[in-house]
């Protein structure tokens, strides 16, 4: 069986959020209900040398949906077994079982499952099931104007783009074995020593 995954190019991503809005459009999500979100990272600082400022700040963006992990903590934690792995290897929610307790969101290190306020149950990225079964890319991937997203069999992506599975501020891939390949931004390598933090918590 194929395992699908996303490729996220943080070098080319401009943080424009087209993928986020394309996802909301395709899945008819309300404003603020994000299956795909963009994390803005900023770090570094300004140096004030007698009124002359030198700039050392940096910023990069990480576009993140559900990583459809191979070892999903949400599936393990869900008390109802609503959270399950589908036949195409995607992690999905059975709406007939979900109680909307939100425990999956706590368990997920990527904050992927979101409460759908209209139904009172959890909801999340379903890999655009209807599109990928027609051999099309998920909406977010096709919408990206920077071509910073890619989608496909994780083994193929791995050969094409390498095998980096994490970047600041994402959790260690050991935790859930996420099916994502990341092209790390150069500043992400020194993010932890250069005072980096999430700059747009309000929008997540």
């Amino acid at each position: 069986m194929k395992t699908y995954g996303f490729y996220i190019d943080t070098v080319n991503c401009s943080g424009c959020k087209t993928c986020q809005v394309a996802c909301q459009d395709k899945n008819d999500l309300e404003p603020g209900h994000l299956w795909r979100k963009i994390i803005d990272i900023e770090g570094g600082d300004w140096k004030n040398d007698n009124g002359v400022f030198s700039e050392y700040p940096f910023a990069y963006h990480v576009s993140l949906a559900c990583n459809h992990c191979s070892d999903p903590l949400c599936v393990q934690s869900c008390p109802t077994q609503a959270m399950h792995v589908t036949d195409i290897g995607a992690v999905d929610i059975d709406q007939d079982k979900c109680i909307g307790c939100g425990y999956c969101t706590w368990a997920c290190p990527y904050d992927a499952p979101k409460l759908d306020k209209r139904t009172g149950r959890m909801s999340k990225c379903d890999l655009c099931y209807d599109r990928i079964t027609k051999n099309e890319n998920p909406s977010c991937v096709d919408a990206c104007p920077m071509r910073a997203l890619d989608f496909g069999d994780i083994e193929v992506l791995k050969e094409k783009y390498g095998n980096t599975r994490s970047i600041f501020p994402l959790a260690s891939p050991e935790l859930t074995k996420p099916n994502i390949i990341i092209r790390p931004h150069k500043n992400s390598l020194k993010a932890s020593v250069r005072n980096a933090s999430i700059a747009n918590r309000e929008e997540l």
Binding site: G15, C16, K17, Q20, V21, Q24, D25, P31, G32, I38, E202, E203
Partner: peptide, 20 residues
């Protein structure tokens, strides 16, 4: 600003929510 073209789309909840 990213969510607008000048003043067009200032009433677009989807884009403005991403870039308040």
């Amino acid at each position: 600003y990213n969510p607008r073209v000048h003043s067009t789309h200032d009433n677009n909840q989807w884009t403005m929510n991403g870039f308040p």
